[in-house]
Design a protein around this nucleic acid. Structure first.
Length: 368
DNA sequence: TACTCGTGGCT
DNA sequence: TAGCCAAGAGT
């Protein structure tokens, strides 16, 4: 442990902090669906869904996912297409691909029981230091730190830690702090209580210090610097990218969709044919799209005029998509799958391509 | 380490 | 409104 942290912990009222925090948590904790029991599988699923994702967003996905895949066995034997569909719209899709693979491993290697040692659980795909600690503490009552953004924010204020929480190496400081402060009697409630406090009281902007159960133990509040903490360096702006996409249809009213590669952005999701536009080219967007369709899919199509644009903002990218529709005149190659509108419902699309479909729908009702 | 990897809500 | 933010992990 770093010397600065050790010094901060000397004389810190640990017992009062724990007691006040846990009493508050027991009285005020939210009634969340993954808090109904201590099923390690359900806690695992919830922790993966909650990564970089708000509680209110996760709740309906969690209900649906557990209904469709109630057990390790059910998820392990499910089709990847169905699993991805249950994640559609949640984002960070590698989470569910890794979860699916890890659940299969738990079934095969651990007899369907989620392992309860740091070493074994860390080997599972998609389980990093936070999720490891969360499962061990919440499902198995083992006093391990589960350091997420909430924990770093809360402890940076409680202990006046001025390290940049955006830097990966500062995580260790907060893990060290947690080892010292965590309740050995109820590590599950302790870890959840710190996160709950971060979500409800010790919020990023304008924390509700007057309602805080550990205000008396908070060194940042004592010094009036709670608004200056945590220190967090800024991330860079997303880079804009010009795209063109087309919803292709044929005489039978089938649509033509493409499965994205198994790695990278939106891996394994389906999409409407699209290409990055060269803004410096002499060719129009429509001409560039036509050329791409021919070269990539051997498609000859009558493209419409522009039917609309879709903007979609990722963490690191902005897609500006010009959308066309097109009647297909020949048989495309195997990289393009013809589907009926009913079949379309089985495939998972990123939100950006759901928006593209809506433009096609609107265009259809308008004229075609 | 720094970058990739989604989405929607909030200020 | 433009940025910021949310129970992070993989590479």
């Amino acid at each position: 442990m770093k010397k600065e942290l050790q010094e901060k912990l000397v004389g810190f009222p640990i017992e009062e902090f724990r007691h006040n925090l846990l009493s508050w948590y027991k009285a005020e904790k939210r009634d969340l669906p993954w808090r109904m029991d201590q099923d390690p599988y359900k806690i695992w699923v919830s922790e993966i869904m909650l990564q970089q994702t708000r509680v209110d967003t996760v709740i309906p996905y969690f209900h649906n996912f557990i209904e469709k895949f109630p057990t390790i066995e059910a998820l392990a034997t499910a089709d990847e297409e169905d699993v991805l569909k249950a994640w559609e719209g949640l984002g960070y899709y590698s989470r569910v691909r890794n979860l699916h693979a890890a659940v299969k491993e738990v079934k095969e290697v651990y007899g369907g029981i989620v392992p309860n040692t740091p070493e074994e659980i860390s080997k599972l795909k998609g389980v990093g230091p936070y999720t490891r600690g969360a499962i061990l503490s919440i499902a198995y009552d083992i006093p391990e730190p589960a350091v997420d953004g909430n924990v770093m924010r809360v402890f940076s204020r409680i202990l006046s830690i001025w390290e940049d929480i955006a830097k990966p190496k500062s995580r260790k400081t907060f893990e060290d702090a947690t080892y010292e402060l965590i309740s050995k009697e109820d590590p599950s409630s302790f870890n959840q209580a710190v996160m709950e406090l971060g979500a409800l009281i010790c919020t990023p902007t304008s924390p509700s210090c007057l309602l805080c159960p550990v205000r008396e133990q908070c060194t940042a509040f004592e010094e009036g610097v709670q608004a200056e903490l945590p220190v967090k360096s800024k991330k860079k702006k997303p880079k804009p990218l010009q795209m063109a996409a087309v919803v292709l249809y044929d005489e039978q009213g089938k649509l033509y969709i493409h499965k994205r590669p198994s790695s990278g952005l939106l891996a394994n999701l389906w999409e409407y044919p699209n290409v990055e536009i060269d803004a410096d080219s002499e060719k129009t967007y429509r001409e560039q799209l036509n050329q791409f369709l021919l070269e990539e899919y051997t498609v000859e199509a009558d493209l419409s005029e522009l039917v609309g644009t879709v903007e979609h903002i990722f963490s690191h990218l902005i897609w500006n998509i010009s959308v066309f529709v097109g009647k297909i005149n020949n048989q495309p190659n195997k990289d393009l799958l013809p589907v009926t509108l009913e079949e379309l419902q089985k495939y998972a699309f990123p939100v950006s391509h759901q928006k593209i479909y809506r433009l096609y729908e609107a265009e259809g009702t308008a004229g075609r």
